[in-house]
Measured scan of single mutants.
Amino acid sequence: MEQGTVKWFNAEKGSGFIERENGDDVFVHFSAIQGDGFKSLDEGQAVTFDVEEGQRGPQAANVQKA
């Protein structure tokens, strides 16, 4: 798993970007967020995640709040 920080997340659209510790920013969709309840992330929040190849390039998967 990688570690990173939420660069921004739009709760209305359900997507945003995570700033990786090593590498380019990666797209995140709300469906990749693990946990119960409303799936959203806050700017500056620390997260851990896997990276998968999506239709438009790398994207975060199995996102967990650190």
Rank of each mutant, 00 (worst) to 15 (best):
M1P: 12
E2F: 15
E2H: 15
E2Y: 15
Q3P: 06
Q3N: 12
G4T: 01
G4C: 08
T5C: 15
T5Q: 07
T5L: 10
T5Y: 13
V6I: 08
K7Y: 04
K7A: 04
K7I: 06
W8D: 00
W8R: 05
W8N: 05
W8M: 05
N10A: 07
N10H: 06
A11T: 11
A11Q: 12
K13G: 06
K13P: 02
K13W: 10
G14E: 02
G14W: 02
G14K: 01
G14R: 02
G14C: 08
G14T: 03
S15Y: 15
S15I: 15
S15D: 04
S15E: 12
G16K: 00
G16F: 06
G16Q: 01
G16V: 03
F17K: 02
F17N: 01
F17V: 09
I18M: 02
I18P: 00
I18V: 03
E19I: 14
E19G: 11
E19V: 14
E19Y: 13
E19K: 15
R20V: 08
R20E: 02
R20D: 04
E21V: 12
E21D: 11
E21F: 10
E21I: 11
N22I: 10
N22S: 10
N22E: 08
N22A: 09
G23C: 07
G23Y: 05
D24P: 15
D24Q: 13
D24S: 14
D24H: 12
D25N: 09
D25V: 12
D25L: 15
F27T: 02
F27K: 00
F27L: 03
F27S: 03
H29R: 05
F30V: 07
F30R: 07
S31D: 03
S31Q: 06
S31W: 08
S31C: 08
A32R: 04
I33H: 00
I33V: 07
I33E: 03
Q34L: 13
Q34R: 10
G35I: 09
G35R: 00
G35N: 07
G35A: 09
D36L: 13
D36T: 13
D36F: 12
D36S: 13
G37F: 07
G37E: 06
G37R: 03
F38P: 09
F38S: 06
F38Y: 11
K39M: 07
K39D: 04
K39Q: 08
S40V: 09
L41N: 01
D42N: 14
D42E: 14
E43A: 15
E43G: 12
E43I: 15
G44R: 06
Q45V: 09
A46E: 09
A46K: 13
A46S: 11
V47Q: 01
V47C: 05
T48K: 08
T48P: 01
T48Y: 12
F49E: 00
F49D: 01
F49G: 02
F49S: 01
F49Q: 00
D50W: 15
D50Q: 14
D50Y: 15
D50G: 08
V51A: 02
V51N: 02
V51L: 11
E52S: 09
E52H: 11
E52I: 15
E52A: 11
E53M: 15
E53C: 14
G54T: 14
G54E: 05
Q55K: 14
Q55M: 12
Q55W: 13
Q55Y: 13
Q55L: 14
R56E: 08
R56N: 11
R56C: 14
G57D: 01
G57H: 05
G57F: 07
P58E: 05
Q59C: 08
Q59E: 08
Q59T: 08
Q59L: 08
A60W: 01
A60T: 03
A60Q: 01
A61Y: 11
A61D: 02
A61W: 06
A61E: 04
A61H: 09
N62R: 10
V63Q: 00
V63K: 00
Q64T: 10
Q64N: 11
Q64I: 11
K65R: 11
K65S: 10
K65T: 10
A66Y: 12
A66S: 12
A66G: 10
